[in-house]
Design a protein around this nucleic acid. Sequence first.
DNA 1: CACAGCTCCTGGCAGC
DNA 2: TGCTGCCAGGAGCTGT
Length: 287
Amino acid sequence: MPELPEVETVVRTLRPNLVGDRFVAVHIEWAKSIAHPATSQFVAELCGTPDDVSLGMVRRVFRRAKYIIMSLESNRHLIIHLRMTGRLILYPTWERARVARHARVSFAMASGRGLAFEDMRKFGRLWLVDDPELVVGDLGPEPLTSAFTPELFWNLLRRRRQIKPLLLDQHVLAGLGNIYVDESLWRAGIHPLRLAHTLTYDEAQRLCAAVRATLSEAVARKGTTLRDYRDADGAEGSNQHTLAVYGREGNPCPRCSAPVQRTMVGSRGTHICPVCQSLDQPQPPAD
DNA sequence: CACAGCTCCTGGCAGC
DNA sequence: TGCTGCCAGGAGCTGT
């Protein structure tokens, strides 16, 4: 599942290949992948006009939370959310992109290369908008910026709500998904069912640092490839080799060797160390 | 407000 | 071997 580190890696591999290149054609294989506007308008507006093809040029490629944003010369923005199984893969030609397995939308670039949006489960979505805020305007803060301070985080926790679903809520904090929430809570020694407003300031500070460390280490390892995730060059990440709890049910906790348990929290598969992440008596993990 | 449940999807896997 | 059916899960939505 692409979360912040995976999306960041996709952006980093896309950027040097796309900035300065131009969209010249697009093929939509699965219309529901286009969230906005109507598919005919999406096709008509992406590539500029016959008398000014430069409007389809990519000026910037960047990320907001789990959204990939490409700013075009036309001042429009192509926004892509990969959801569960989405990928953005570069190919030497448009033809290769079009025939890629699970290709839902494919783009021809002026350079002759192709870009494919591949998405087995069809949950991913694309937008073409004038104002990116229409898509990403309601997101919470970015956890890897200097603005994400323990004080800010402390304020986000002033709610009577289970900590794991809270951390997964993109309106509260933007970028975490199921893998990195489980890993962050394990690192901070906090049980996913703890109510956010009952965390001590010390615990909040630990969790804040845990989120930052978990995400930045995953970025450095180019993301977690459990099954579907690839960067724009088709390469896997390596963070899956260092996961502490996610997907490790029955294996020893790296900190205390107790068997990792899998439970359900908020109807999501959840992995904890029952010793390091106690629900009853909050105490710092013996790190 | 909090949260459970439903929807969208399909490859992979368990069970028979 | 081959069939059926269940399951994951991000985000938006409805219902309680």
